[in-house]
Simulated assay, not measured.
Amino acid sequence: MAYFDAPKLSFLFDLELVVEKAHLPGTTPIGTRRIIRVEGGHFGGGEVIGNVVPGGDDWITVREDGTIIQDVRILLKTDDEELIMMSYRGIRTGEKDVLARLDRGEDVNVEEYYFRTNPVFETASEKYDWMNKRIFISTGQRLPTGVKYSVYQVD
């Protein structure tokens, strides 16, 4: 029995990141590591629009079964010149053959794998202060040159 209605989602923006080729430090006690630098990107489609400042990173841990755990930090610059820090942890998983195709940079249908993140925003901007006080989730898609997310606010 549910005590409350399920949360609703409202669209925030689409985000596309362009990334460098992965640096491969190897397998550590935590798992196989990949470090991927973010070269840039853009976001929009909702009320918050702008570009990704080059220089963020995605510190990935690859589990034995191929599941990827993300730890990402990037900087967004809105079209009205405000800076918003964005960090998120995420998970991308699926059947081994699907994950192998993604690793080879192939175009894979998003319905063949699970890719979700939980973005957290931090800003000194008065205009975007509301983003400091909300929960967000996103759906992801791996592209040959980067990743694409659709970000939603949990209402």
Rank of each mutant, 00 (worst) to 15 (best):
R101W: 03
G105L: 02
R92K: 14
D97A: 10
E112Y: 01
M85C: 04
T67S: 13
W130L: 04
R101D: 11
T67Q: 12
S138K: 07
T93W: 02
D79W: 00
G66P: 02
W130D: 03
N132A: 08
E126A: 12
Q70S: 15
K96F: 02
I74A: 14
E111K: 14
E82M: 04
V120R: 13
R134H: 10
D79C: 00
A124S: 13
V98C: 07
E126I: 01
S138N: 13
L75C: 09
A124G: 12
D107I: 15
L75E: 09
E126D: 14
D129P: 00
T93S: 15
E95W: 01
I84D: 08
R104K: 15
D80K: 06
K77T: 01
Y114P: 02
R134F: 01
K127L: 08
D79P: 00
G90S: 12
L102Q: 05
N118S: 13
Q70T: 14
D79E: 14
Y113H: 09
E106V: 03
E111F: 08
V98T: 15
Y88Q: 10
Y114S: 06
K96T: 11
I137W: 02
L99I: 12
T67N: 04
N109Q: 08
R73P: 00
D107V: 15
D107T: 14
G66Y: 01
W130K: 07
M131C: 05
L99A: 02
E82G: 01
I135H: 11
N118C: 04
L102H: 06
N109K: 10
E126Q: 12
E81S: 10
G140Y: 09
R89F: 02
L99G: 03
D65N: 15
R73W: 04
K77P: 01
V72R: 06
I91P: 00
G94P: 07
F136N: 06
N118Q: 11
D71I: 04
S125P: 08
R92H: 04
D107N: 10
E126C: 01
T123F: 07
L83P: 00
A100T: 14
S138H: 08
D65E: 09
I135W: 08
T117Y: 02
I74T: 15
R116S: 03
D71Q: 13
T139L: 11
T93K: 14
D97C: 01
R134W: 00
G90C: 10
S125C: 07
L83T: 03
G94I: 08
L102N: 03
N118F: 05
G90F: 09
T139W: 03
I68L: 15
P119F: 09
L102D: 02
Q141K: 15
D97G: 00
R116N: 03
S87L: 10
G140V: 08
I137G: 06
E111S: 15
L76V: 03
V72N: 08
P119R: 11
E111R: 14
D80V: 05
E81Y: 05
I74N: 11
G140A: 10
L75H: 01
I84L: 11
Y88M: 06
S138G: 13
